[in-house]
Amino acid sequence: MSGHDAMVTTLSNLPLRSRAKILAVGGSPAFRRRLMELGLVPGTPIEVSRIAPLGDPIQLVVRGCRLSIRRKEAAELTVFSEDPRATGGLGCGGCAA
C-alpha cells in the first residue's frame, strides 16, 4: 500500500500526531453510539495525540476535546488518512481519484 499518500485505514493504524477524517464508527452498539454522541460522527477530523506510557489506551483530539480509548476499540474506527506513515490500509483512497 505504501506509495499512495491517501488511504482508508483504521484509527489504530494511525501513527502518533497524525490527522485523519472519520469514515465510520464500529464496535458494540453502546460504544459506537457513545462515541458518536461525543462528536465522532463520520466526516469529523480526528488526531492521535498521545499513547499511554504502558502502550494502551491512546489519546485522541476530536473537536478540541481530549478523549481516550483503547487500541482494541480504535481498530473499529475507519478513517481516511493522508499521512504517508499510516499502515495497514483497508483500501486505497488515492486510486479512486
Partner: peptide
C-alpha cells in the same frame, strides 16, 4: 458484566 470499552475524557 458486559465488557465495557473505555471512553475517557481527559478534561
Amino acid at each position: 458484566g458486559p465488557n465495557v470499552p473505555l471512553i475517557l475524557e481527559l478534561p
